[in-house]
Design a protein around this nucleic acid. Structure first.
Lengths: 147, 147
DNA sequence: GTAAATGCAAACCGTTTGCTGTACA
DNA sequence: TGTACAGCAAACGGTTTGCATTTAC
């Protein structure tokens, strides 16, 4: 099922409406492979259609998260970054402390381990948030090894 | 070396001063085994000494982080939680989505894995942020297993 | 005595909300 | 045509900053 179908279905099921703004925000997130923040989404939306408010961007993002089409990530800067949910398995992020680049990686082992840990403690795990910071290949001081 | 010694040394080395307020904030964090936020620290500080401002609490926390005596954690609520650095190895947190309880756990395997991952990608890892959310032993629905 | 640090209040920034008008179904 | 949604601006909560005053060294 495509994201557009999913959107239609979620709208239909909940008596909500397909608006220009909702389409636009989802489009922007799908086209971008980056991790845009609300302000960046707002700017891009404005370029295509001046009749969009920042509050609507936030409301739309909340809605898209609610229906599972968008994920929000915090990279420790005190504001959210948004990403259209992809079909492949969940992933984590590495942020370069110099250039700010965000690198995605998958680590099924972490998820396994997380579940084992929680099982052994009697905890019911719902969400795993794993985020790395450091220096990317371009920005790391020459000759340093990953310590 | 005790935390107080470390504080003295850091102050001395940087030409900074030992103030009532800095001692107080560090004391509060050391006595508490919780993950206090700035507001909670401020309230506790006020109880002991009314001449303390919230801005000073924030400035002091920034300073204590800078010299490595305090760590800040984000639990996805949009504000920081602070913890005096302990001597034992780094740890991670599990937040109960119902009662809000924060459980600490250690997982050297995660750190190992993180380093291996970064090595294989040529990334220099500086910080690992691992945070779990879910339901604690008391709050999880009866009969559910950790899925 | 003189920096450094404080308290206060105002500014800040990302996000949310109330209200009135707009547009989707 | 009715109700969900939009835009705007004002409120919000956590944090930072500017400035006059205090205080550690």
């Amino acid at each position: 099922m495509t994201q557009a179908n999913r959107l239609d279905e979620a709208l239909h099921n909940s008596g909500r409406r397909l608006t220009r703004q909702r389409q636009l925000v989802l489009e922007i997130l799908e086209e971008s492979q980056e991790h845009l923040d609300a302000e960046a989404i707002f700017e891009r939306a404005r370029k295509r259609d001046a009749r969009v408010g920042l509050a609507t961007v936030y409301r739309t993002l909340a809605f898209l998260k609610e229906i599972g089409l968008v994920d929000e990530y915090q990279f420790g800067e005190g504001h959210g970054h948004f990403e259209a949910v992809k079909d492949d398995s969940p992933h984590n992020h590495f942020t370069c402390m110099k250039c700010g680049r965000v690198i995605e990686f998958q680590s099924p082992q972490v998820m396994d381990m997380a579940h084992k840990l929680c099982e052994s403690e009697g905890l019911q795990l719902v969400e795993v948030n794993l985020h790395f910071s450091g220096y990317c290949t371009q920005c790391r001081p020459v000759g340093t090894n990953c310590e």
